[in-house]
Simulated scan of single mutants.
Amino acid sequence: MTSPGSPSQARSLIIERLVGDSGEAGHVIGTGRSMGERALPLLQKSLAGELGAQVTVDLRAVEVSRVPDARVHAGESFALTIIPSPTSSDAMTLVIDAPAIAVMVCALFGGDPDQPVAPIERELSQIETDVATTVFQEVAQALNGSGRRSLELRLPVPRALSGNEARRRVLRDGAAVRIVFGISTPTDSGTVTVMIPQRILLATRGIADVHDSEGTTDWRARFSEEVMRSTVTLEATMPLARLTLGDIAGFEPGQVIEFEETAQSHARLSARDKTLFVCEFGKLGQNYTVRIRHPYDAGQDFIDGLMPG
């Protein structure tokens, strides 16, 4: 791992460490809506045409959310899957609720679309979970895209989880765009919720590229005013020395400990327990100071720790 190569990359690194990578809400929603609208005819064709399920697919909502909220509106019975990509273990999270599963099961197995579907008020069966997996596969393929803007999802999708396994699955927190598709017949409807982390959109859809060439990305364009007004406490620490546990056990009150020769140039500036910059400790007039040298690189620090001196 190397240090960021430009000021804009450095700022992005600091932003990710503090609050999680996110984009301006309007741009994120616009990108999510464009993805949903492009995927809609493909999804309609795959479900109604190739699978033979006589259902209608529509785009219900596109909004800014957080990944763990994927299950909030799914009820007690639902199916879930998490799709990885080469750059992320959770590039897309998909949740389908029980009404949508019931609609798909009825449609796929020849049910009358004009008759109400019996609701699912129990744990999902093996067949119902398999149907959910099939729907997830079609949704993921429709949204994946191609070329430079592809999400590069690793397909086929992992088998859907249901029951306690789906309810207890830990979802990594982070800003996301929430895309909700409706699946319906004339009498019933349900939803498929798609959560795509904003860090994935930032990497694949160019949301954060507006001023990167000049390194002048405006932080206010990336966060709400509430976040911009929040304050954090900065802490500067300086490494003391590398000692054995035996040396430390022998410390006594009043003992003086020397700094290492390079300690002054390796102070670290942190906020919320996250190290942000490597600094140089100094003094300006009567005040002590730290001068920023470069952004903190956790990978390089780990390597340096393996090869001290």
Rank of each mutant, 00 (worst) to 15 (best):
S6K: 10
P7T: 04
R11W: 07
S12H: 05
R17E: 12
R17N: 13
D21P: 00
V28K: 05
T31M: 10
G32S: 13
R33G: 02
R38K: 11
A39E: 06
L40I: 08
T56W: 06
E63M: 05
R66M: 02
S77P: 00
S85F: 04
S85T: 09
P86F: 05
T93E: 11
V95N: 05
D97Q: 13
A98M: 06
P99V: 08
A100W: 03
C106S: 14
C106T: 14
P116Q: 11
R122N: 06
L124Q: 02
S125C: 01
Q126H: 09
T129I: 15
T133M: 14
T134P: 03
Q137V: 02
E138F: 02
Q141F: 07
Q141P: 01
A142K: 05
P156M: 12
V157P: 04
R159Q: 12
R167A: 09
R167K: 13
R169K: 13
L171M: 15
D173T: 06
V177C: 05
I179D: 02
F181I: 02
G182S: 15
S184W: 11
T185A: 13
P186R: 09
P186N: 14
D188F: 08
T191V: 06
I196H: 00
Q198H: 07
R199E: 00
L202N: 14
R205V: 03
R205M: 11
A208K: 00
H211D: 15
D212F: 09
T216H: 08
S224G: 12
S224W: 04
V227Q: 09
V227W: 06
M228I: 10
S230R: 15
T231E: 15
T237Q: 14
A241P: 02
L245F: 14
A249T: 09
F251G: 14
F251D: 02
E252N: 10
Q255L: 11
V256S: 09
E258D: 06
A263N: 04
Q264S: 04
A267G: 15
K274G: 03
C279M: 15
E280W: 09
E280T: 15
F281I: 03
F281L: 10
K283A: 13
G285I: 01
Y288A: 10
I292K: 10
D301Q: 07
G305V: 01
L306M: 15
